[in-house]
Design a protein around this nucleic acid. Structure first.
Length: 357
DNA sequence: AACAGTCTCAACCGCCTCGAG
DNA sequence: TCTCGAGGCGGTTGAGACTGT
């Protein structure tokens, strides 16, 4: 039995929405609220199907949607969540305040996915691609270019080259936050196409770096939650530089003022169940993620659904549940913070250029 | 200036889930 | 328990913008 498409109808308009249509939809929803999407087109005087109205509202018109460039932290959250959960865009959207699943999906497909591929990583498994020995193996010239320790700042603009000479994904390497001249590179900076970095051949190395940065994020979050976020808040060197030199606002991270401790404790319990040694700098973080995902999966099954997100199901894909936000990254980060040997060791040596080797 | 290739992302498509009756 | 429909979700498309030649 095939279902009749919901958007079959005479005279229904498709394609880009006009400003007039947007105004009609917005004014109708402001007066009558969301829901009953099938009836909205007729009541609002729109020649669109209800589904199209709902998507236009949830993905574009909704007032609390954050648009524009993804922040460095948002990128890392996406990468971490994708590594553990796969293409669960709606789940990611619940962890990223004011971002829609569609936007995250687009950003993954156009930027992050290509970046992983370019680094020789399978964007599905986040592991090195072994079938093609060329992938993940940087050209010797690339290594030479990027391994010059004498001037790490050159990792920004000095790597400028014509976009055509670069693989597409190289345009969004995570470390591209501060230009070599110190210019903040927030708006549009991360999509700059004029940079190139060494490629990693190890997922674990990548994830260890992500974990390191996650601990920095946790610092911000913790300080934000405690209302003590100040310039003195302990950050990794690169993140300090980032915050000082970019228009990035720390209060953006005051989005989690009520992070519930029990979630963090719960995550710590989960992590405690794992046989891991994060004090070991050589620890393969991908194992950690795999084990952690396994536990999550088991819990989801026990709670009645496979691969359920711990966040209540009544949370829409675009809404923000502050109490339950980011339990994963908070848990990981708090755990890593408790293992100062590991985090300090990696943060001290950290430089943006090393993030994606 | 014109053209071609590439990139971005809003929008669409179709299947899935879940709740109401 | 079954059916139906609304809404959710992930994959895909294509128009427009951008960039290089």
């Amino acid at each position: 039995m095939s279902r009749k498409p919901c958007c079959v109808g005479e005279g229904l308009k498709k394609g880009a929405w006009t400003m007039e249509e947007d105004k009609k939809l917005i004014s109708y929803i402001y007066e009558n609220g969301e829901g009953g999407w099938r009836d909205i087109p007729q009541k609002a005087g729109l020649k669109r199907c209800g589904k199209s109205c709902r998507l236009r509202w949830t993905n574009y018109l909704k007032p609390d949607i954050k648009r524009g460039e993804f922040s460095y932290e948002e990128e890392q959250i996406i990468i971490m969540l994708h590594a553990s959960r796969g293409n669960k865009w709606s789940v990611m959207a619940r962890h990223l305040p004011k971002r829609t699943d569609n936007e995250i999906k687009n950003y993954w497909n156009t930027h992050l996915k290509k970046r992983l591929i370019d680094q020789g990583l399978d964007p599905v498994t986040h592991k090195p691609v072994s079938s093609n020995p060329k992938q993940g193996m940087p050209k010797s010239s690339d290594v030479e270019d990027d391994s010059n320790p004498s001037n790490p700042d050159e990792h920004s603009q000095s790597r400028s080259m014509s976009p055509k000479s670069l693989p597409p994904s190289s345009s969004h390497n995570l470390p591209e936050i501060i230009s070599s001249d110190g210019t903040p590179k927030n708006e549009g900076s991360l999509s700059s196409k004029k940079h190139c970095f060494k490629r990693t051949s190890s997922t674990s190395k990548l994830l260890n770096k992500v974990a390191t940065r996650a601990s920095s994020i946790a610092n911000i979050l913790s300080a934000s939650m405690e209302g003590t976020l100040m310039s003195s808040t302990t950050l990794s060197p690169s993140l300090n530089e980032f915050s000082e030199n970019s228009p990035f606002q720390m209060d953006e991270f005051d989005l989690f003022p009520h992070s519930s401790e029990h979630i963090v404790d719960h995550m710590k319990e989960d992590i405690g169940m794992l046989d891991i040694d994060l004090n070991n700098p050589e620890y393969d973080f991908s194992n950690f993620l795999e084990q952690f995902s396994h536990i999550e999966g088991e819990e989801a099954e026990n709670s009645g659904g496979y691969n359920q997100d711990p966040i209540p199901s009544d949370v829409s894909s675009t809404s923000v549940d502050e109490d339950n936000m980011m339990p994963d990254i908070t848990g990981w980060s708090n755990y890593l913070l408790d293992h100062s040997d590991f985090t300090s060791d990696t943060t001290q040596d950290y430089d943006a250029k090393d993030f994606f080797i």
